[in-house]
Amino acid sequence: MTNWTVANAPDQTGRVAVVTGANTGLGYETAAALASRGARVVLAVRNLDKGKAAADLILRRTPGADVSLQELDLTSLASIEEAAGQLRADLDRIDLLINNAGVMMTPKGTTKDGFELQFGTNHLGHFAFTGRLLDRVLAAPGSRVVTVSSIGHRLGRIRFDDLQSERRYSRIGAYGQSKLANLLFTYELQRRLAGTETTATAAHPGGSSSELSRYVPSVLQLAFSSLEQSTEMGALPTLRAAVDPAVTGGEYVGPGGPFEMRGYPEAVSSSRRSHDVAVQRRLWTVSEQLTGVVFPV
């Protein structure tokens, strides 16, 4: 199917979706699209005031939409545990868990638990959040875990000898490592989900204008500005990876246009490094050790 849009998304009435980073940008557009198709949507956000504003906007776009908030700070394992505990109390199942939130090419920094900020937020935070909620996802037939990666994963490699970039820090290298980790996580999770009714998929938005790019070096912003697309278009790969029945476990969805920077969503390929099974398994083990979260699969 070409030119896949929100209109092609199946009705989501009766389904429950949790979207991280849903107060702005790609996460907001993904949440708004799911709400417009009838899903009950939980906006998992760090800033509740911004989350409330986003929920109000969704309600204006789709009167009667079922939207709620959950405070979540992916830079804190304690916040992740608390948020997951509250969601487990509120929900008996989760049909769609969309790991969208992230940071991009930030100055050197650490999470509240001392992890390098990009790796800790983009990968370890979502790894822990998914692990703590997976039993609720497994309880929903046909459920999916969707993790948002990036074209930038092609610039990354997993440096097991310096995962936290303590010896040398590169904003671009750390971002690439975190986005590569998103794909390694997705592919390993899909393998572990074999025999269940749950699948893991991944997506990337191409070149989409959003608050996420505020730390991107100006020379890169200038180089890619002509290929950028709207956040509405950038959110379509995530939406398709989440709800299109034709998308299967382990697939990666991105824009189908030039250099995967823009265009309607379709299945795309990922780097050779992302398919290294030994690295997938080793990263999984290390992630369990760092977060203290062990998956029930």
Rank of each mutant, 00 (worst) to 15 (best):
T2G: 14
N3C: 08
A7N: 13
A9G: 07
P10F: 10
Q12E: 12
T13F: 01
G14W: 12
V16Y: 04
V16D: 01
A17C: 13
V18E: 07
T20G: 07
T20E: 06
A22T: 00
G25Y: 02
G27I: 00
A33L: 03
S36V: 00
G38S: 09
G38L: 10
R40N: 05
V41E: 04
V42N: 04
D49Q: 15
K50R: 15
D56P: 05
I58Q: 07
R61T: 08
T62M: 08
L69A: 08
Q70Y: 01
E71W: 04
E71T: 13
L72N: 09
L72Q: 12
D73S: 12
L74R: 11
T75P: 00
L77W: 07
I80G: 01
Q86K: 15
Q86G: 03
D92K: 14
R93G: 00
I94V: 15
N99P: 01
D113K: 00
F115I: 10
F119G: 02
F119W: 13
T121C: 13
T121S: 09
L124G: 03
H126W: 04
H126P: 06
A128K: 05
G131E: 05
R132I: 03
L138A: 11
A139E: 10
V145Y: 01
T147K: 03
T147D: 06
S150E: 08
R159A: 14
D161V: 05
Q164T: 04
R167D: 15
R167M: 10
R168E: 15
R168L: 12
R168M: 12
R171M: 14
R171P: 10
I172Q: 12
I172H: 04
G173R: 02
A174F: 00
A174H: 04
G176E: 09
L180R: 02
N182T: 00
L189A: 02
Q190C: 07
R192K: 14
A194E: 15
T196A: 12
A200R: 08
T201D: 05
A202L: 05
P205E: 07
S209Q: 13
E211H: 13
R214S: 05
R214L: 04
R214M: 06
R214I: 08
Y215W: 14
P217W: 11
L220D: 11
L220A: 14
L222Y: 00
L227Q: 12
E228F: 14
Q229L: 08
T231K: 14
G234T: 01
G234Q: 02
G234C: 02
A235L: 05
L236E: 09
L236M: 14
L239P: 05
A246S: 15
G250H: 13
G250S: 12
Y252A: 06
V253W: 12
G256Y: 09
Y264V: 01
P265E: 09
P265D: 08
S269T: 15
S270A: 14
S271K: 11
R273W: 04
V279H: 06
R282C: 03
R282N: 07
L283K: 09
V286D: 11
V286I: 15
V286F: 12
E288W: 07
T291D: 06
